[in-house]
Structure formats: C-alpha cells, structure tokens
C-alpha cells in the first residue's frame, strides 16, 4: 500500500475499495452473462443471440434486462416469511462480495492481502448456502424448499473437493495468501526452467480439474444444476422471486462465477502476473487486464461445460463427490506432499 502517494486515511481507502468491489460484481456478472450466457451459448447452439439492443451485437441486452427487473413489481408470496425472504438475496450477494476482497488484480490492487487468503475466500463463499436455504424456506413453496435442500446438500458436499483441490496448491506454494501464491507462480520454475514461471495448472492439473468441477457444482451449473433444474423444480429456490430480488440472485450467480473463475485463475494460472515482468507500477495497470483475460478463459471452460452437459441426478451428484472427487483430491494432496518433501 505504499504506492498511494497522498495519505488519505485508511477509512477513505477502504471505502474506495468497497465501492470498487461493489462495482466489480455487477460488472463481472454482466460481462460473464453477456459474453457467455448470451453470445457464446447462442453460437454454440447455432444462434446469434441478442443483436439489436445497444446497436453492436446486443451488448446492452443485460443492462436493459436489469433495468426491466428493477421496474418490475416486487411480488412476495402471501405466506412467505417476509423478512427472511427479503434478506436472502442480499446474503447471497454479500457472500459473493466478500470473496472479491482477497482476489488480487495487481501488486497493490487488492483490498486485503490476508494471511489466510484462499481459506478465507472458500469460507465466505460457503456463506451463500445460508442465503439459498433462507430463500428456499422463506418462499413457502415446495419446489423452492426442495431446490434449497438440494442446493444445500450439494454445496456442502462440493465444498470438500474444492478445498482439497486448493490444498494441493497451498502445499506447493507454501502459503495461503493469494498474493503469495501469485508470486510463487511468477517466480517458480518447472524442472529448472523458469521461462513461463510455474503456473500451477501444469503441476496441479488434477487439482485444477477438481477445482473446476467442484466450482461448477458450487455455482449450481450444469451438469450439477439440479437445485435450479427448470425441468423438474422450475427454478428451485428462486421460483418465487421477481423483480430486483431476482436480479440480486442473478448477479449473485454470475458474480460468484466471476469470483470462482478469478480464484481459479489466481490459483492455477498465475493471476495477474506475467513472468519476468516485476515492475510494480506497470503491473498495477497491466495486472487487471491479464487477470481479466485469464478469468475469461477459465469462465469459458466452465460455461462451455455448462452448455454442453446434461445434469446428473441428486444421488449421482453426491456419488461423484464422495466416490471420485474426494478420493482423487486426497490422493492429489498426498502426492503433492510427497513430491514437495522429495524435491
């Protein structure tokens, strides 16, 4: 934080950062939603997607949708638990918001470089389960409750592989701080060759795959989207939500996707860093762009799978987590540990 030339007090800095993060979430949600949900999916399905709003390839579509949602009537079911119902979307978005706190976008561009960075990110992202359960329960709707229970079970089950996938990285980097992990990738070497640093995706390819799969489940995206399976449960816990509350959920969903893609990019692809470019001011400008590019790549892979695969059944989903992902994750950790000790 030394590069902040004028001393403007930590309170001001904090509020600036808060505002930035608050802006990043909807921006990220819109970018992902537009690029992938609207355009990529359309092209994968031989369609064009929105073309008219905003003139150029329909870029305005989602913003327009947002405006539409805000204008809509705020419907609340008669028997709903009003306070909880109203609070639930906020909880989901807050959970997303808190993840962004530790994702670095440049040498100085980070809200708080926590010592326990990754751990923190995973911990707060698990908060959204509470929001989901609240939403499902408060809606007074069978479909919503069923969807919420499914979401809860799924999120709990997949937190574990997510964590295990990350542990491999943490072991290899020797730190939980995301900045530290970025640094160790930037300065690392593979088999003595440091030409491209050591993006952990090369050494932790199993972890990367696990992370993507588990993140997919955490985001309740296909093939793990049964909590919101529209052909069974309409849209799960979100079924009673309209207007801006639904917008919150939407932002939460894509914001979280953005966050997880950011985490994956940071943990496995080297985050904002470019190997051998260590100039701090330069990276403060370039970093966000590099990170964005990597995020887009990860998000592309995640959404690619989302648009291609059918969904599993609830029991199969649990079986995948407990029978395959977790043992693989544990084995990965053991292997990483052994190699770390040996080399």
């Amino acid at each position: 934080m030394t590069s902040v030339a004028i001393d403007i007090g930590w309170g001001t800095i904090l509020s600036i950062k808060t505002v930035v993060v608050l802006a990043v979430i909807p921006a990220g949600a819109i970018i992902l939603g537009y690029t992938f949900l609207l355009k990529m999916m359309s092209h994968m399905q031989s369609r064009l997607g929105p073309m008219d709003p905003g003139g150029f390839h329909g870029w305005f579509q989602l913003i327009g949708d947002g405006i539409k949602f805000i204008q809509k009537e705020d419907v609340m079911p008669q028997r709903a638990d009003r306070r909880v119902f109203a609070l639930a979307p906020a909880v989901v978005v807050i959970a997303t918001f808190m993840v962004f706190v530790v994702i670095p976008a440049g040498p100085d561009l980070i809200v708080a470089d926590l010592d326990t960075g990754v751990f923190y990110a995973l911990a707060v992202s698990s908060l959204s389960v509470v929001g989901v359960l609240m939403a499902g329960w408060a809606s007074a709707n069978k479909f919503a409750l069923l969807g919420a229970l499914r979401a809860g079970a799924q999120l709990i089950a997949y937190e574990l592989p997510l964590l295990l996938a990350v542990v491999g990285v943490v072991v290899q980097a020797g730190t939980m701080s995301l900045q530290g992990i970025v640094a160790s990738q930037q300065n690392g070497e593979i088999f003595g060759w440091g030409g491209i640093g050591n993006p952990f995706v090369l050494t932790q390819i199993v972890g990367f795959a696990l992370f993507l799969v588990a993140a997919q489940a955490e985001l309740t995206q296909a093939p793990f989207d049964m909590p919101v399976a529209e052909s069974e449960l309409v849209s799960g816990y979100m079924v009673e939500y309209t207007g801006f509350r639904f917008l919150f959920f939407f932002i939460g969903e894509f914001g979280t996707a953005f966050a997880f893609a950011g985490l994956a990019a940071t943990l496995f692809l080297g985050g904002w860093s470019i190997p051998h470019v260590t100039d701090v001011p330069v990276m403060n400008v370039l970093g966000p762009l590099v990170l964005l590019a990597k995020v887009m790549f990860v998000a592309f892979v995640m959404f690619w799978a989302r648009f291609t695969y059918p969904r599993l059944r609830e029991d199969q989903l649990q079986a995948v987590a407990w029978k395959y992902l977790i043992p693989i994750g544990l084995a990965n950790i053991v292997l990483t540990g052994i190699l770390k000790v040996v080399f």
Partner: peptide, 16 residues
C-alpha cells in the same frame, strides 16, 4: 430429450 435431462444445447440442434 437432452433438454429434459438438463443439457441446453441439443434441442437447438434438433430444431435446427
């Protein structure tokens, strides 16, 4: 059938 099982893309191919 793909859509009912949750895949978003196959129905578009079918329709196309």
């Amino acid at each position: 059938m793909g859509l009912q099982v949750g895949a978003l893309t196959p129905p578009f191919y079918g329709f196309r």
